[in-house]
Amino acid sequence: MPATDAAVRPPSSAPAAHRPPRRRHRRLRLVLRYALLSIGAVVVLFPLYMAVVNSLLAPSQIAHQPPPFFPLHPQWGSYRKAWTEGDLAVYLRNSAIQTTVIVAGQLVTSVLAAYAFAFLEFPLKRTLFVVFLMTLMIPFEVTIATNLSTVSSLGWFNTFPGLTVPFLATGFGTFLLRQAFLQIPRDLREAAQLDGYGHLRFLWSVAVPLARPALAALGVFSFLSAWNQYLWPLLVTGNDNSVRTVQIGLKQLINTQLDQINVSLAGTVIAVVPLLVLLVVFQKQLVRSLTSGAVK
């Protein structure tokens, strides 16, 4: 289920609710609010809605003027075409592999590094933490020139390592998890230490379970950014569609199926559905990761 209303204050009860004019006024305001919300929803949803509508129309119907806003005779063939002829099944599988590797890798490297920063004392700790934060200042885009030659000299063009390895660590994720680990009382670590638990066992059986909300937030965030990557997959998957991701597949689809807009739109809908599911299920975690830093 979407969103929790728990975070929202209950509507303030006006002291004079029994007076009729006031009540009518409030009713009107409520109606206005719903109207405003609905307009917003239409604006936001309209493009995606039209994509769904058009994906269900035959190309000849799409070009019809005025444009049809409802698919009276839905044609599901476009989805089958996108899936098979557009190789979307392959692209989706590739995206799933690429995303899974990146999410898992980022979670692992961030958990390990964050634990060191939160629970261990070692020389150069401060400096190394600044180094991690500095990675946030270097956008990936300014590193592509050299990364391309690195990847090519490793023979990683058109391979999953080429797609994923550069993203297996994240300064943001390390930071997020370090914050979560710092919330864990030191006493817990010391109690475990007296009981004979080493750092790695403590990490696994106490720190990680307690940081689950932050791990989920990071996981969802990593998933989102990995799935939606565009520039890097475009550059490293060249013209080999055996590892091409869904985003690049869409570009391909629009280029090759110019006369079949319904097929490329069907592909688009297929590509966006996994993420909409993600949003519905993990809305809270996603919001948490997107707003870290926005509010205390």
């Binding site: 006493d187 817990l188 010391e190 007296l194």
Partner: peptide, 8 residues
């Protein structure tokens, strides 16, 4: 064995 102020 230690009993912590926060119980840990």
């Amino acid at each position: 064995a230690m009993v912590f102020q926060s119980y840990a």
